[in-house]
Design a protein around this nucleic acid. Structure first.
Lengths: 242, 242
DNA sequence: CGCCAGATTGAGTCAAGTCAAGCATAGTGG
DNA sequence: CCACTATGCTTGACTTGACTCAATCTGGCG
């Protein structure tokens, strides 16, 4: 399991020094603006495995950035089934589904020991009113979540089990690479159940497809430890050919 | 087919007088603010059936509100298949997926003769910087689209063909009711192909399920004309029981 | 050590897909 | 005005990928 350096659980770090800021705060912001953001970001908030960050229906006050660990967002449909709507890795932001109704539309739960930064939304609004770049940034964040979700819709409605799973592996690999972690060797923070609920498959199918990929020498997998042998083949299967 | 009164193709109407503004501009805005919005909204823009409003990859400049008719948004996946990501009826807003990358992530096409209002995004940003209510409104709009998309993910990944189709019928019925049109008798603006592409089903399955619903006396359907006989049963099937 | 939760594997089933034929309606051109 | 074509919709017969049910395996922990 890759260890995080410069202790991610250290609450004293601020955004301007955070090595994840290239992911949280892309381009648009100037140094002076980041300093202002620092003042509203509340750090700390270590979460134990399975602990909830918020629950569906809770009053919405803040969005969160994952600093370390991994968090899943899910909602419970009327028939009681869990639909995982997203996995959030360090540098990624969640909770934006709460803005519309002033209540979170999903629950967020740590899949492993995690730390998050909390950003009160009222402060974001205030800051966005003053700093055009900040406003632009949050509009973009929201829009990108929409695009992500729409891509996921396509995955769910048009793709086979193999394509879905390959797509997830490629995605996690790429997101690890962006954090300067290995793109080929990593730990899956989520259970088979979570993967199934995210991809619209049963755990048995997830397990079978992983086994098939292993048999074809595309990956080595042992429980949650993955070693990607042939990323190009996975990309081809995932139909991410561009 | 229900006719639109107070001519929807009339470009001279402005937001403050538009009878759809309760849908486009819920609550938050004050009269004086709506007047400012009026100044940036460009009207007119009649679209012929099948005409595109924008295409995936086009430079993003504006979001659009449907004034009359019906528009679908879709994207073409790498394997060349069309995924319909949403249907937009009068009063509904589309194009927000373009903000993140400054290019539209999907294409938008009129399914019947339609009219749309164009709202240049740069003006929205400017106005949102000045008017906190306006900023709040657009944050909400974006967030609600996220919630919608996530609900649709659940539909695609966990529900049967009957549940999906019942859900679409209930949704269209409710959206018609919101516009003071009949909730029980309406015209489907989209083809079976579009419905299938939206719901992750083949046209044959869509057709068969409609026939089944008709046989069970839940609806009367003839091509695109629908008469809902038992909306409660459809809601039960759609699992929208709350 | 024994228990439990999570993961794997196998066998059989089924909902929705594929393939194919036929029907209905609208538009075109002679 | 009608025959012809194109497009969209419906229906039937068959196939299949993923699901269900069930058994077994694995590793961590009290």
């Amino acid at each position: 399991m890759p260890a995080e350096n410069n202790c991610p659980h250290n609450a004293a770090l601020n955004c301007s020094k955070c090595r994840l800021n290239a992911i949280c705060l892309p381009l648009a912001l100037e140094q002076s603006e980041i300093v202002q953001l620092d003042e509203i970001v509340q750090q700390g908030r270590p979460l134990q495995r399975n602990q909830h960050l918020y629950r569906e229906g809770d009053a919405f006050n803040s969005i969160f950035a994952v600093r370390s660990g991994a968090v899943k967002a899910y909602s419970i449909s009327d028939n009681g089934e869990e639909q995982v709507t997203g996995f959030y890795l360090p540098g990624e932001i969640l909770g934006m589904d709460g803005i519309g109704q002033n209540r979170y539309a999903s629950s967020a739960q740590a899949m492993e020991v995690s730390a998050v930064c909390e950003i009160p939304f009222i402060k974001i609004e205030e800051l966005s009113g003053r700093l055009p770049n900040m406003q632009k940034h949050f509009f973009k964040l929201l829009s990108q979540e929409i695009v992500e979700d729409q891509r996921h819709m396509t995955l769910l409605s048009k793709h086979t089990a193999e394509e879905r799973l390959a797509s997830l592996l490629v995605s996690i690999s790429a997101r690890n690479a962006r954090r300067n972690l290995s793109a080929s060797s990593f730990h899956l923070p989520m259970s088979r159940t979570d993967i199934g609920n995210f991809l619209g498959l049963t755990i048995e199918t997830v397990s079978r497809v992983f086994s098939r990929f292993a048999k074809q020498d595309l990956i080595d997998i042992n429980k949650k430890e993955v070693y990607v042998i042939d990323i190009d083949a996975l990309k081809r299967i995932a139909l991410i050919e561009k």
